[in-house]
């Protein structure tokens, strides 16, 4: 029996956190909300646990319903306290709903809350899943491990499975639902929490797609030579409507922000198209991108290991090839 044939009305809890507060903008859910609800809708009845500052909750709850939450449970937390209060809210929701699974985005705040919840309930935890399915044994999570070299399926021996979902991995979206909102009663655990002293928001410089969920990515490496010359990667990305990525060497050299690092210790991506520019293709870089559907590599060293996995490899000087490519793409538009 395949996963989609098995349906159930069991509640599937999804943790939806508030995104960072931006001055003059309406409160929004953090990235991954639509994905978590989409995944939940395939397993059972999606029930959202919406957690944020008290005054933002009505708008966040409405957003959750529009993304497919059949019911929305809200809990106000002090955003200046890390980890413990969100786990308190989730634990209260689990007690109330007895869900078959709890789905949480594998973001920083999400995985912190999921870790605390699993430890508190001593409940099985499946981390960084790229898919969740229901088979005749129940709910299972799929993981892409060792740089995409292996696929592992995990499950709970019994009881609910807590799953963190890799951002950008779930394509399915749930249908919008009419808002059905209730406040969750949360008994504070009194667990000590770390405190937020300050927050400096980074203004998004462009309308470029997010690296984690982009369908196309152009990544630059040490071969770009300088922060100024990294602009070539940005030009190519913008021509293609692609996100920007980088190797660790490029991040360490200060060409780009570390949030753009692709690889073992950076972000793992699986886009339709990945163009590597001046990246040698060290095993730790390949670990984060080798599941891309199509890979193009540009490098002047014919022996660079990136060519071993490229669908199209071009040996040559990136400083002449990339501008020509940008021009050719513009001409075809």
């Amino acid at each position: 029996m395949t996963s989609t044939e098995m349906t159930s009305n069991e509640p599937i809890l999804t943790l939806l956190l508030a995104g960072p507060a931006v001055a003059d903008e309406a409160p929004a859910l953090a990235d991954g909300a639509a994905e978590a609800l989409g995944a939940a809708a395939r397993l059972g009845t999606p029930v959202a646990v919406v957690v944020g500052a008290a005054d933002a909750l009505p708008q966040l709850a409405e957003a959750a319903a529009s993304l497919g939450a059949a019911r929305v449970l809200t809990a106000a937390v002090d955003p200046a306290q890390l980890g413990a209060p969100v786990a308190d809210a989730l634990a209260a929701a689990v007690a109330q709903e007895a869900p078959a699974a709890v789905l949480v985005s594998h973001s920083i705040e999400g995985s912190d809350a999921a870790g605390r919840l699993a430890a508190r309930l001593r409940a099985p935890l499946a981390v960084d899943a790229v898919a969740v399915e229901r088979d005749d044994e129940g709910i299972v999570a799929k993981h892409s491990v060792y740089g995409g070299g292996f696929e592992v399926t995990s499950a709970a021996t019994y009881g609910p499975l807590i799953v963190t979902l890799r951002l950008g991995a779930i394509d399915h979206r749930a249908e919008a639902a009419a808002p059905q909102v209730s406040a969750l009663e949360v008994g504070a655990s009194g667990r000590p929490a770390a405190a937020v002293e300050g927050f400096e928001s980074v203004v998004q410089a462009s309308e470029r797609p997010d690296l984690r969920s982009a369908k196309k990515i152009v990544s630059g490496g040490r071969g770009l030579g300088s922060k100024e010359q990294f602009a070539l990667v940005e030009q190519l990305a913008d021509t293609l409507g692609a996100a920007i990525g980088a190797s660790r060497a490029a991040v360490d050299a200060g060409y780009v922000d570390q949030s753009l690092q692709v690889g073992q210790t950076g972000t793992s991506v699986s886009p339709d198209l990945y163009i590597a520019v001046g990246i040698s293709g060290a095993i730790q870089h390949r670990a984060g991108m080798q599941t891309a559907k199509t890979i193009i590599a540009i490098d002047k060293d014919a022996n660079a290991p990136i060519f071993e996995i490229a669908d199209l490899g071009v040996v040559g000087d990136l400083f002449t090839i990339v501008p020509q490519l940008v021009q050719a793409l513009e001409a075809r538009k």
């Binding site: 292996f150 592992v152 995990s154 599941t291 490229a310 669908d311 040559g316 002449t320 090839i321 490519l325």
Partner: peptide
């Protein structure tokens, strides 16, 4: 309750595709 691995599979290795050396038209080729 515990979390257990119920299946593991190895993904087939990726094969190299076409490798070309820039002859002045590589940008157009891409």
């Amino acid at each position: 309750a515990r979390s257990i691995m119920v299946a593991a599979t190895q993904r087939p290795a990726r094969e190299a595709g076409e490798i070309i050396t820039d002859d002045g038209t590589a940008g157009e080729r891409i």
